[in-house]
Simulated assay, not measured.
Amino acid sequence: MIGGRFLGQNRRSAAPRLDLSHNIILYLEGISVSFDGFKALNDLNLYIEAGELRCIIGPNGAGKTTMMDVITGKTRPDTGSAWFGQTVDLLSLSEPEIATAGIGRKFQKPTIFPNHTTFENLELAMAGDKAVWKVLFARISSEQADRIDSVLRTIGLSDKRNVLAGSLSHGQKQWLEIGMLLMQSPELLLVDEPVAGMTPQETERTAELLVSLSGTHSVVVVEHDMAFVRSIARTVTVLHQGSVLAEGSMDQVQNDPKVIEVYLGD
């Protein structure tokens, strides 16, 4: 696996069956995590619906990154449970197994292969059990090429397919990494501060992209840019001191006295 996320994962054969019969794709219940006496998460309860676009906001130290670390298996909680659908116990799986199960995570800093083209980056990220060198030198099928073309259109980089990824703009690199996750057909996407450092035009395009992915995928966005959150949010969850402080529409949380006091009013 290169970059910790993309290669050597055969999702088609290894992924446990996802049960969305209750329309909830992610359950976090009673999750607590402590680091050297500091409680990063404190009895956190969070539920994400299938196909939902959820925005998570909160001040630094609120527990946003630790929450994503728990979901992806990087951090094990002291207490609580984490379920992917009705039947997949995330706390019993390793990080690669969680990725294989259908959870993709995009970090703030894009992880791409700068010396390969945009097309080749998506090819490398393609789900399957091929070894790296086989991927690099094998001929891809017409179906696989069509899949890559479809993702290129989704992320708005069709005209950059033969451009080295290292020469892309900051925003384009972010979109490419989202495309690399999409190549594995994840059910749930975790996206960390996607518009940090972007131009206004890139920020607008990123909003359109994330909104377009919801429905087909469940998308959880952690972001500090309140204007961006307002442009995409249906439901906003506010974390504070490792717990959910408020949840609702952007208008509801912005007008919540508790939220104003600890976050938005700063």
Rank of each mutant, 00 (worst) to 15 (best):
L136Q: 14
L136N: 06
L136V: 14
F137H: 09
A138I: 02
A138P: 01
R139C: 05
R139V: 12
I140R: 15
S141E: 06
S141C: 09
S141A: 11
S142V: 07
E143I: 12
D146A: 15
R147H: 13
I148T: 07
I148Q: 10
I148P: 13
S150Q: 12
L152K: 10
T154S: 01
I155K: 02
G156P: 13
G156I: 10
G156Q: 11
G156F: 10
L157V: 12
S158M: 15
D159F: 02
D159T: 12
K160A: 14
K160H: 14
R161Q: 13
N162V: 03
V163W: 00
L164S: 04
A165M: 07
G166L: 05
G166I: 07
S167C: 03
L168H: 10
S169T: 15
S169R: 12
S169V: 10
Q174A: 04
W175F: 15
W175K: 14
W175D: 05
W175A: 15
L176K: 11
L176W: 13
E177G: 01
G179R: 02
M180V: 03
M180T: 02
L181H: 06
L182Y: 06
L182R: 09
M183Y: 04
P186W: 03
E187K: 14
V195W: 11
A196F: 06
A196S: 15
G197N: 09
G197Y: 08
M198P: 11
P200D: 13
Q201L: 09
E202N: 08
T203D: 09
T203P: 10
E204K: 14
E204F: 05
R205T: 08
A207V: 09
A207I: 05
A207G: 08
E208Y: 08
E208T: 10
E208G: 02
L209F: 07
L209M: 09
S212P: 13
S212W: 10
L213S: 03
L213N: 01
S214I: 00
S214R: 14
S214L: 00
G215V: 01
G215R: 04
G215K: 03
T216Y: 00
T216L: 00
T216D: 13
S218W: 04
S218H: 02
V219S: 08
V219E: 06
V219I: 12
V219T: 10
V220G: 06
V220A: 07
V220C: 11
V221M: 08
V221K: 09
V222A: 01
D225A: 05
D225N: 15
D225Y: 05
M226P: 13
M226Q: 08
M226N: 05
A227Y: 03
A227C: 00
F228P: 08
F228M: 11
V229W: 03
R230A: 11
R230N: 10
R230G: 01
R230E: 15
S231R: 11
S231P: 00
I232M: 05
I232K: 02
A233F: 12
A233Q: 10
R234L: 00
T235A: 00
T235D: 11
V236S: 01
V236L: 01
T237E: 00
T237K: 00
V238L: 03
V238E: 05
H240C: 01
H240Q: 06
G242V: 04
S243V: 06
V244C: 04
V244R: 04
V244T: 11
L245D: 08
A246F: 03
A246E: 07
A246M: 07
